[in-house]
Amino acid sequence: MAVDVATVRRVAHLARIAEPEDRLQAIVGELNGILAWIEQLNEVDVQGVEPMTTAVEATTPLRADEVTDGGDPERILANAPKAADGFFVVPKVVE
């Protein structure tokens, strides 16, 4: 698998990472190098092996349905670049 400039531009946009146009070609090279390295894994026969999404042999812990948090809007908003009347304030997003 290899990526091209258009793919890198698209992935960067989806991740909201600002990459200048003149950097894209260089990133294509770097990413393709990484992808080629990872592709060596294809040499391993994984026929019949379940995909592994975690290295931890455990199941998810569960908590009781109790209210133990919240009620502190000032703390939630403390780092907001802009807030008003208890709300986060962001540039207008219109449907």
Binding site: T68, D69, G71, P73, R75, L77, D85
Partner: peptide
Amino acid sequence: SGAAVGFGAGPNEQVSL
């Protein structure tokens, strides 16, 4: 998260980190 679910609370009152 342990923040409350409900209708009609003040803005960001029912929010955990």
